[in-house]
Design a protein around this nucleic acid. Sequence first.
DNA 1: CAGGATCCAAAAGGATACTG
DNA 2: CAGTATCCTTTTGGATCCTG
Lengths: 120, 120
Amino acid sequence: MNSDCTIYNTVDLISKRWTLLILLELHRGGGGRKRYTELKSGLFDISPKMLSERLRELEKAGMIAKTVDASRVPIRTDYELTEMGKDFMPVIRSLKGWALKWKGDNRVCSKVECAECNLK
Amino acid sequence: MNSDCTIYNTVDLISKRWTLLILLELHRGGGGRKRYTELKSGLFDISPKMLSERLRELEKAGMIAKTVDASRVPIRTDYELTEMGKDFMPVIRSLKGWALKWKGDNRVCSKVECAECNLK
DNA sequence: CAGGATCCAAAAGGATACTG
DNA sequence: CAGTATCCTTTTGGATCCTG
């Protein structure tokens, strides 16, 4: 369509399955670094293929940063939100506000561990 | 995943291809009613199947309203944003703000008629 | 542990023709 | 005009096994 349109490309990135959930997962509990396996169990149904694919996309987009510590065995990898990624949270918050206002009768799910709802 | 989670369901709705573009198209030029064909030519690459499918979804979600005037031939149909739909614009605006801040070097495409960028 | 490689099923989307 | 119906291609994603 308009592959040189920033808005369109942004929508294209964030509208992919799991993407928002991964960002929320990285934001959970005050942010900070999270391991691949940690993310994987937080998003408990995701396949390794999907997770690494999305992580690659998000890293390329500049929303997350990857740190590898190869000095130890096994290799340790961490992911965290960049400033750009953190700054995206208000967008999600805005979406949540809208949903709470207009879809309130469906109510936000009550599970404490629901990554989708876990945005303050 | 969590089909009873409002946030998740919202993301699921709006992240579908064309959905945001249709909303923007309905918002264009001060809002107001738009005909099916009008929308179709505004989103010039969309297939009739996609357009009617998305319109149905959005209507069901309560974001747009459909008006049919069968008293005349040919039948005239109009679509417009509901209050819920209009109230969604700040969410898109928030997304655009983020994109302009962080993806500014890619710049928003300059075409005046670009529906994606046409949000004030 | 942190993925990559493969294979396969399902869903999404496009093109086109048709209709009340 | 405002779609529906059909067919077919492409994409997406899940399951699983493998490896440095």
